[in-house]
């Protein structure tokens, strides 16, 4: 069974790589399998992780705890969501959609305000002048780094502020912000390239080691 699985995985890997030559039926078959299997995988994963663990176990608890009948309301909204497939009463699906939108807005507003805005501002302003815990002397390397971070964050935010025209001192500050943002994008681009390369190495390693046994 294990050997069969390795052969299936190897042939599918080669099928996807065949796209490097040109778009072809073998690649399209592998692509179609991927779409179908991944849709099925996520449907099952959600069914057991959310519907079973959060709804079924909550409504019919087996550990003696009180059932949470409120969850039926969530299930009802979920069923209403499926009405989207009907052309006549599809508009009712807006109710659960409105619930999702309201819940997302309510949850994420506080979460993002605290974690993204407040915590990041606090981390930027904390310990700008870095001193050695033993000698209490200023550590110039770290201090310059911290000051650079403050300059980068402030100028980057100035660049994102579009309510005022980017002219004069404001414009120059925004330009400095762009430089910091370009370094960030460059660093992320470098990391993306590295992660894709490591995935490629992983697939080639699988083909040569596990499938063809050419590597020890």
């Amino acid at each position: 069974m294990e050997l069969f699985g390795i052969w299936v995985a190897a042939l599918l890997t080669l099928g996807i790589f065949s796209f490097l030559y040109k778009d072809n039926p073998v690649y399209k078959i592998c692509e179609s399998i991927f779409i179908g299997v991944s849709a099925g995988y996520w449907a099952i994963a959600n069914f057991f992780d959310a519907l079973h663990k959060k709804f079924w176990v909550g409504v019919f608890p087996t550990d003696g705890s009180d059932p949470n009948y409120m969850l039926w309301f969530g299930a009802l909204l979920g069923v209403l969501m499926l009405l989207r497939l009907s052309s006549k009463i599809g508009w009712i699906a807006r109710w659960p959609l409105a619930f999702i939108v309201g819940a997302t807005a309510g949850l994420y507003m506080m979460l993002y305000f605290v974690s993204n805005a407040m915590n990041q501002v606090a981390s930027t302003m904390r310990d700008v002048i870095v001193t050695s815990p033993e000698t209490h002397l200023i550590m110039w390397g770290e201090t310059i780094g911290s000051i650079l971070i403050v300059i980068g964050v402030v100028s980057g935010l100035v660049y994102f502020f579009f309510s005022k025209e980017h002219k004069g001192v404001f414009g120059y500050t925004a330009r400095v912000g762009i430089w910091f943002l370009m370094i960030t994008f460059g660093a992320h681009f470098g990391y993306t390239v590295m992660s894709r390369m490591s995935l490629l190495i992983g697939r080639i390693d699988f083909l040569f080691r596990d499938w063809l046994h050419l590597l020890n």
Binding site: A50, L51, L71, G78, L82, F99, I100, L107
Partner: peptide
């Protein structure tokens, strides 16, 4: 919890 349950139906 409702949010999670509705999200399953969305899937």
């Amino acid at each position: 919890l409702f949010f999670d349950i509705i999200a399953v139906f969305a899937f």
